[in-house]
């Protein structure tokens, strides 16, 4: 089957890869581009471990063909701290013990990053709903909720300072 050249922006950098049409985005990210932060947990779009941010939307990369990402702007967990300074959601997960084995964490972070742009001041119920496409087996979610709240507060404070 013939392969196709696709190009997209990955964490701010242009990339070009040669893919078979059937190749899943998560495989291309992990195996061709060496970005192994996005994980594979279920392969049926239930667990969210493969969540990436594509053109400003949270998507599950196990259920996207890489060819569909052609021309897009893609952000993965590896791009959350471009200058080396941790993003507020990353800091929140550390401060509030929002991770244990770390396997769901990249998907959680990249989803939380987007959630806080969709809703900068979410209630606990809104966090539970907004994060409901990401499964975690370790934390019982409670500290992840706190981590998102921590990040929301920090981002809000940053806005105030900036203004």
């Amino acid at each position: 089957m013939k392969k196709t050249h696709i190009t997209f922006t990955l964490n701010g950098q242009p990339v070009e890869v040669l893919v078979e049409p059937r190749e899943l985005l998560v495989h291309v990210l992990r195996e061709q581009l060496g970005q192994t932060g996005s994980h594979i947990g279920c392969e049926t779009s239930h667990c969210g471990a493969c969540t990436v941010d594509l053109d400003g939307r949270s998507l599950k990369a196990c259920t996207l063909l890489a060819v569909q990402a052609d021309g897009s702007d893609l952000l993965t967990v590896e791009g959350l701290a471009p200058g080396g300074e941790l993003h507020a959601v990353q800091e929140g997960f550390v401060q509030e013990h929002g991770l244990q084995c770390g396997y769901c964490t990249p998907g959680m972070l990249i989803r939380a990053y987007r959630l806080l742009q969709e809703n900068p001041n979410p209630t606990e119920a809104e966090i539970r709903e907004g994060m409901s496409g990401n499964l975690c087996r370790c934390t019982g979610y409670q500290n992840i909720i706190k981590a998102v709240q921590y990040a929301a507060k920090k981002l809000a404070e940053g806005e105030v300072e900036a203004a």
Partner: peptide
Amino acid sequence: RKRKEDGRFIQGKGSYVDDVK
């Protein structure tokens, strides 16, 4: 105290078996 292992996980730099190439 905060966990010493978190740094790599929150940056997508964990090293799981499927990451081995």
